[in-house]
Amino acid sequence: MSDDTRATIKQRLSVMQARQRRAERMRRVAVIAAVVVVLGGLVATATVLILKERGRSSLDAVQTIAVTQREHTTDPVTYPQSPPVGGNHDPAWQNCGLYSQPLRNENVVHAQEHGAVWITYRPDMPMDQVEKLLALARGRDYIIVSPFPDLSAPVVVSAWTKQLKLDRVDDPRLPAFLRAYIQGPATPEPGAPCSGGIGEPSV
């Protein structure tokens, strides 16, 4: 084999090896790019889910309503909100607990003054949904649960100066509301009793 032939073969081998190295580099770059894309997609999906969950459990939708009066009265009171979130009220507070019949606003408002949260639901709500509300509240202090006629949403949860309307009983904002507003910062008489008043919880 002549020197020229050897040189030609060596040159061809060198070219082939260079092409193989370039191809290998391109494959590595493609793999890395694919991994980056997949990881980026996973991170983006996780971020969206986290933000969505935070949005569901956020209390940004809670209405804050000014209450300027809280005198005792035995007369009926016309409240600007339905259900009410505070105001003048009966001298006797509603005992906290679970009720199967609508309650008198004036007595529940007095319980709200003591730090109770009132969970109200439409009277025609299916019983399996009602049971979910009862299970959430059963055995806990400073919660009143009762049906409420002509409710503007399937579930409305109210504390002193605070109210949140919900479309579902399993909305994560409901337990968040309870954590935030049972004996919450707006409670006029924190620590006052939620028993020893009137009413016999029936559920």
Rank of each mutant, 00 (worst) to 15 (best):
R19L: 09
R19Y: 09
R22A: 13
R22N: 09
E24H: 12
M26P: 00
R27W: 15
R28G: 09
V29E: 12
A30I: 12
I32T: 08
A33H: 07
V35I: 14
V36H: 08
A46C: 06
T47D: 08
L49M: 02
R56S: 05
S57C: 07
T68K: 00
R70H: 14
E71W: 11
T73V: 08
D75N: 15
T78H: 06
G87S: 13
N88I: 02
D90L: 04
P91T: 14
P91R: 14
Q94G: 08
C96I: 01
G97R: 04
L103G: 07
R104G: 15
E106W: 11
N107E: 09
N107K: 03
V108M: 03
H110A: 10
H110I: 08
E113R: 07
H114M: 06
I119W: 05
I119R: 10
T120G: 05
M127S: 15
M127N: 13
Q129A: 13
K132V: 14
L133Q: 04
A135D: 12
L136Y: 10
L136A: 11
L136K: 08
R138S: 15
R138K: 14
R138A: 13
R140G: 10
R140D: 12
I143E: 02
S146F: 00
P147M: 13
P149N: 06
P149M: 12
A153W: 09
